[in-house]
């Protein structure tokens, strides 16, 4: 509860900053519309040549894109900006002040910079999903909705752990832009992970990016059972323990000196 109150303060702070740069605010909204259009074109382009890609029809693939927008938007609203700035904090030595705060350091670093403007991504995703559910005449039960929500929570949580771990490598290296290594992993969730043939299992159970978009979409269209979401909770817990342990281990190597 206390952490939620702290996060709400972060959001208020962000909104104040956001309102200062009005040109940027307008451009962000414009970029959102443009990006959505581009993504839609890019995603549907292959379907001008084929009916199915890796077993997914066009409507189903758009469903995946919708879930990508929802989960990616949530990730940005919650933690992406904060974690991507971790490296610069370590390099400049300004992580010191984070360590002195009365909240957990990994929590503070992750959730400090809530990019609330990306809520628009979530809305776009909801529209994509909603339109496609209607268009495909899907009958969605309570269990399916539960499974979908659970998968999204699991996916967003696991991705946070992956980004935190990758960016924590900055405790040992410097000036490496580590965030750029993890970012393509999110890009691949725009499409069904089944594209990767036999290697797809890595994205279900190894680095479970599938929970961001493919699993919720598969549950909705009946390709997977709803309980996949519950299985995902185990994975999410495991990743959270990994990430927190790694973070604490990395902190031991933090010198506080700027580089």
């Amino acid at each position: 509860m206390r952490k939620i109150k702290v996060w709400i303060q972060f959001v208020v702070l962000y909104l104040k900053q956001f309102a200062v740069y009005r040109f940027d605010m307008l451009f962000r909204l414009f970029s959102m519309i443009l990006m959505t259009g581009i993504m839609y074109v890019v995603l549907t382009l292959p379907y001008e040549h084929v009916d199915e890609i890796a077993g997914w029809k066009k409507n189903e693939a758009i469903l995946i894109l919708g879930f990508y927008y929802i989960s990616n938007g949530l990730a940005w609203v919650l933690y992406r900006t904060g974690i991507s700035n971790l490296e610069s904090k370590i390099n400049s030595g300004s992580l010191d002040e984070v360590l002195l705060r009365p909240v957990g350091s990994s929590f503070y670093v992750s959730y400090l910079e809530a990019d609330v403007s990306r809520i628009s991504d979530v809305l776009v995703g909801v529209v994509f999903v909603g339109i496609n559910i209607g268009g495909m005449n899907l009958t969605v039960g309570v269990l399916e909705v539960f499974g979908v929500v659970l998968s999204l929570v699991v996916g967003v949580s696991i991705v946070k752990c992956i980004f935190l771990m990758v960016n924590s490598l900055a405790f040992w290296t410097t000036e490496t832009y580590l965030d750029h290594v993890a970012s393509p992993l999110v890009v691949l969730t725009k499409y069904p992970v089944d594209l990767w043939g036999k290697s797809k299992e890595i994205f279900y159970w190894g680095i479970p990016m599938a929970f961001l978009s493919t699993v919720p979409a598969a549950i909705l269209v009946g390709k997977l059972e709803w309980w996949y979401g519950i299985v995902g909770i185990g994975l999410a817990l495991m990743w959270n323990v990994f990430a927190e342990t790694f973070w604490r281990f990395g902190l031991r190597f933090y010198s506080g000196a700027s580089r």
């Binding site: 040549h49 084929v50 890609i53 832009y177 580590l178 290594v181 691949l188 594209l195």
Partner: peptide
């Protein structure tokens, strides 16, 4: 290390796109 990270990050995304279009080419 920045150099290695820079090269890896630049290659990952084209791999993703190429897989999408490669699969399409196989089926079209």
């Amino acid at each position: 290390l920045k150099l290695i990270v820079w090269i890896i990050s630049g290659i990952l995304e084209p791999i993703i796109w190429s897989v999408l279009w490669y699969v399409t080419a196989q089926e079209s």
